[in-house]
Structures are given as C-alpha cells and as structure tokens.
Amino acid sequence: MAKSDKALVWGLFAAGGTVTAFVTPVLVVLTLLPALGVLPDVLTYDSLRAFADATLGRLAIVAIVVLSLWHAAHRLRITLHDFGVRADYAVAVVVYVAAAVGSLAAGWYALAL
C-alpha cells in the first residue's frame, strides 16, 4: 500500500473500531435471542422493513456493516503480520478488496430494499 493510502484505511479502522465498540455487543444480543426462543420485535419482517425504509435507518445499517468490515480488514492485516505472515502486500490487497466488495454489496442490497 502506498503511504498516501494510510490515512484513509486508518481513518476507516478507527471509525469502525469506535462504532463497533458501541453497537456490536447489543446487536449481537439482539440476533442471539432467537436461539433462546425469544424474537425481539425489531427482527420481525415488518418492523425491520419499516426501520430500513426510513432513510436514517437504512444509512445506519449500511454504515455499521461497512465500518465493521473496514475495521476488521485493517486489524486482520496487522494481526496476520503478528502471527508471522510476512506477505503484507498480498494480505493488504486481499483484506481491503474483501472489505470493498462487502461494502459495495451492502450498498447494493440497501438500494434493492
């Protein structure tokens, strides 16, 4: 990765780290509940659809998915280095391309809603 890309990926990493720190645990609790036999209202089709049909709700969904992906991608790149994988350029290409594809998919699905 060129030096000039650093600010962008680090910015996405930091923003994603902050957003996931605040919202991931509670979201995981929500999607865990069905396995305990509890269906929170927000997970019914009509409720989630209504949430996603509001512009802010749809933006929030896409933002959370995209920032989670970029946070995980960047940290995974560093973590693989920590685990002794030294092919940093190849790792960087793979993780960032995966995050970019996931982000485009999230945008695509949100538009298809």
Binding site: V65, R75, I78, G102, Y109
Partner: peptide
C-alpha cells in the same frame, strides 16, 4: 487483535441478513 476476526464474521452475518431482507 483477534477480536477483529469476530467483528468481521458478524459484519458478514449482517451482510447476509441485509441480503435476505
């Protein structure tokens, strides 16, 4: 550092959920 694997896995689950929705 390894928490990122789980954050990433959950992001993927959300992506699948969005597709299903």
């Amino acid at each position: 550092e390894v928490t990122c694997v789980f954050i990433g896995a959950y992001a993927f689950l959300m992506l699948v959920g969005l597709k299903r929705l």
